[in-house]
């Protein structure tokens, strides 16, 4: 369903963040992306919906070449791919419900939405998504009044408003404590299992990878080092991914 072919990214400063990365993802898979800080995880995820322009290579999604899509076509691609961020990226001065409704922007009439008019169905949907992540009562608070865990749930609700076929989650739990981390990961798991949404999720902790992912890919210095089920990451592979001096914890 998603196929990455020889993807490379060189930033303006000359940093090569991705080198000839190729892999593919099946519909309904839960794929973890692991690697050290700076290994190119965020770059990879952002290339997929072209928040970052890839330098080389091809991304094929649902049979469509994303890298060749025009601006208008890109909007149609993006609205089917939800994104969840490490720092939640909510518009903190806006209300929670407005943040969630923003997930519909790719679908609704641009003019009406610019006047903050959304169809009634979308508002009901936003409330039910908030209900699903357990924070319906907070809908009309300002987003910055919420705790970190609650903000990330708003982030997930926003992504789900897109009726996505795939969710890109860039270290969704890295700024949360372990208990909250599990609850957020469980929401992603639920979305993956119940709604059949493909999830690409970059993670720092291997125990989370083992617990939630069907499959993992590993990056080191922008190069794909591993592609397989998480339990295949033995000590030798681990050192290849995380460097010689790394030690497994937990």
């Amino acid at each position: 369903m998603l196929e990455i072919k020889n993807l490379s990214k060189v930033y303006d400063g000359g940093v090569q963040a991705l080198k000839n990365v190729s892999f593919s993802v099946e519909q309904g898979e839960f794929l973890a992306v692991i690697g050290l800080s700076g290994s190119g995880k965020s770059t990879l995820l952002r290339c997929i919906n072209r928040l970052i322009e890839p330098t080389n290579g091809q991304i094929v999604w649902d049979g469509q070449d994303v890298t060749a899509a025009s601006q208008d076509e890109m909007r149609l691609v993006r609205r089917k791919i939800g994104m969840v961020f490490q720092h939640f990226n909510l518009v903190t001065r806006s209300k929670v419900i407005t943040n969630v409704l923003a997930g519909r922007l790719g679908y609704v009439n641009p003019l009406m939405s610019a006047l903050n008019r959304f169809p009634k169905g979308d508002i009901e949907k936003a409330l039910s998504q908030l209900d699903r992540v357990g924070i319906k009562e907070q809908a009309y608070k300002r987003a910055d009044e919420l705790s970190g865990g609650q903000q990330q749930r708003v982030g997930i609700a926003r992504a789900m408003m897109q009726e996505p076929a795939m969710i890109l989650a860039d270290e969704p739990v890295a700024s949360l404590d372990p208990v909250l981390a599990h609850s957020i990961m469980q929401y992603l798991e639920k979305i993956n299992k119940e709604d059949g949404v493909t999830v690409l999720c970059s993670l720092h902790f291997l125990d989370l990878v083992h617990r939630y992912a069907d499959r993992a890919i590993a990056l080191n210095g922008g190069v794909l080092m591993f592609d397989g089920p998480p339990n295949k990451i033995d000590d030798e592979k681990f050192r290849e991914i995380y460097g010689k001096d790394a030690e497994r914890v937990g």
Binding site: N49, L51, N89, L105, N116
Partner: peptide, 21 residues
């Protein structure tokens, strides 16, 4: 930049991105 990125990733056009992010 974060909220801007988030709104863009929903498929919002330029006007919507300005109004919402």
């Amino acid at each position: 930049q974060g909220p801007l990125e988030a709104i863009q990733s929903t498929g919002a056009n330029r006007l919507q991105t300005i109004v919402f992010a």
